[in-house]
């Protein structure tokens, strides 16, 4: 993964670690494998159910008793459920949410981490406290709000994807800000100070120095907000009413929200496919997450 470096210390360190790695390798693999089983085995049920004929979720412990692609086929062929469209909607909405959340959350985290201003601590506390507010009535409030907005900005109101993105961005200064705030704090202020002495503006320090340094956490936050938006159905269900606007989560939820008539087979198939982009995203972005500060510096 990393190219060679000529620094003797690093090389010495690597040698030591290699030795340690060898002697420790077997138990690390054991633990990792156990955890993989723990992570995977409930999902194997979903896979089995998506391939079964019966359309049940937990019907038997006999996994993969029947294997058929019928559920997947139904998913893509039923004109009632424009699955591909939902998929695209989800990607667009989650992508935009991820981008917006990362930008706004990072900016706020930067302000809290780098500036000393009146009400800074109170502001942080307020963000925390707001998150503790139970959202039991959100479904009425958000609807009322978007209904009012519809009259002013129709493209931002009810039944619009933009409106849903805006609702999601309302949570941009949530847990993500705390995550980034903590991360920003690990970057010594000496760096900014040195740059300020050299005449860099705050915007330049932010965009060209700090953000690249916190890249791993930006990627993490982007992923987290992407997943949040991708899997949410509670808010999406309130905002989106027309099936052609649905996200994947809303559409899939409809398969199983009817009592006694749940179509678990199709739902599982949809969930498996829905999990794919998230998985691919993770595989793709993983190197940005782990190739962090030291990696970025040591690597070529």
């Amino acid at each position: 993964m990393s190219s060679a470096t000529t620094q003797p210390q690093t090389q010495r360190g690597r040698k030591r670690r290699t030795k340690a790695g060898r002697s420790n390798a077997w138990w690390r693999h054991v633990v990792a494998l156990i955890m993989c089983v723990f992570a995977l085995f409930p999902l194997v049920y979903a896979l089995s159910s998506s391939l079964s004929e019966a359309g049940s979720l937990m019907g038997s412990n006999q996994l993969f008793a029947t294997v058929t692609g019928a559920n997947y086929q139904q998913l893509f062929s039923d004109p009632q459920t424009p699955f591909m469209r939902w998929f695209v909607n989800s990607l667009v909405i989650a992508g935009a949410t991820a981008l917006g959340t990362t930008l706004m959350g990072a900016a706020a985290a930067y302000a809290f981490s780098r500036f000393r201003f009146n009400g800074r601590r109170k502001g942080l506390m307020s963000l925390l406290v707001i998150q503790m507010f139970p959202q039991l009535l959100a479904f009425v409030a958000i609807f009322l709000l978007l209904f009012a907005i519809s009259g002013v900005y129709p493209f931002l109101g009810l039944n619009s994807r933009m409106g849903l993105i805006a609702v999601y961005l309302g949570g941009a200064l949530g847990a993500n800000t705390f995550l980034m705030y903590g991360f920003f704090n690990t970057i010594p202020r000496d760096i900014d100070e040195a740059a300020t002495i050299d005449g860099a503006s705050h915007a330049q320090i932010y965009w060209t120095m700090i953000l690249p340094l916190v890249r791993p956490i930006l990627v993490v936050v982007a992923m987290l907000s992407f997943i949040m938006a991708f899997s949410d159905f509670l808010l999406a269900q309130i905002v989106l009413q027309d099936p052609s606007q649905y996200t994947l989560a809303v559409g899939l939820y409809e398969f199983v929200s009817v009592q006694f008539g749940e179509d678990w087979g199709v739902f599982s198939a949809g969930a498996i496919i829905a999990a794919l982009p998230v998985m691919l995203l993770f595989l793709f972005l993983q190197r940005y997450i782990v190739a962090g500060l030291t990696g970025g510096a040591v690597k070529g």
Binding site: L103, M104, G105, A107, A108, Y110, A111, F112, F115, F117, R120, G123, L127, I130, F133, Q135, L137, A138, A141, I142, L145, A166, V167, L169, G170, G171, A172, L173, T177, Y206
Partner: peptide, 19 residues
């Protein structure tokens, strides 16, 4: 600081504080 906080705060005000 307000320059950095404002965009997120607007969304927060509209969609969370309103709730």
């Amino acid at each position: 600081p307000a320059k950095y906080l404002f965009p997120g705060l607007i969304f927060l005000l509209v969609f969370q504080v309103f709730v």
